[in-house]
Amino acid sequence: MTAESAPAFAAKDFKSDIKPVWCPGCGDYSVLSSVTKALAELQTPPEDVAVVSGIGCSSRIPAYTNCYGFHGVHGRALPLAIGLKVSRPDLTVIVTGGDGDGYSIGGNHFLHACRRNVDMTYIVMDNQVYGMTKGQPSPTTEPDWESGLVPGGTRIRPFMPLVVALASGANFIARGFSGDPNGTAQLIAEAIRHPGFSFVEVLSPCVTFRPEQRNWKHETHPAPVEATNDRGRAARRLATDDGFNTGVLFYDNRAPYMPPVDANLTDVQQFDREFAV
């Protein structure tokens, strides 16, 4: 084998030996696999990747990878990742989480992370339910979904993450399906490669509390049109699609955010002067 033909890292090199807490059949197993496949495709050494998350079933992913990880508090994965990326721009930063973590308790950070456009990839495994707490409605749950916490349904219209991401300034928007791990791996790899804030919403069934989501494999389909960089066209498509279009749906070329860097560094002692009488 020559050096060219032997990639340094295979997907398994990005997996840890920790056994996931997920239920058998959970879509998140496939998403984990897609993440590691994407990293293998990019050939980024595991120690140069940080996977950051909040709380929830899908937020358990960092420890299941062989990358650096931070499993933070509920809803705050994005600011945690932003602090890391702006101070360590050399790292590849991936944020993972669920719909409750990202769109409900962390909703404000979602808006501002899209606006800020720091170079990172945000993967949301959307199963339209709080699984870890055993079946409560999330922001993406249908208004008439029956649950113990909200009998009769929430009667609130579902949150539209892709539309919100577009309106807030995300630089890359895609939708994947956990039942298509290779396709999702491609989306994730492309999202990581794309500069700025890349948002990948992955439909990832909760077979325990939303068994009807097993049917998603029949409902998802590749988007019938090419990705657009036209914000107006994307707005119409994302606001009116059936929620099951997969693929890259929008991309932009806004410059990623980085705080200012001063080329002429000075010593802290220089600041003493401004106070001297």
Partner: peptide, 24 residues
């Protein structure tokens, strides 16, 4: 001095940004 400041969207974000940077 080779550092930087980021204005956060709220205090929940600012403390987490600080923790994230420190982790790095």
């Amino acid at each position: 001095v080779g550092g930087n400041l980021v204005q956060a969207e709220d205090e929940l974000a600012s403390i987490n940004m600080a923790i994230g940077a420190s982790y790095g």
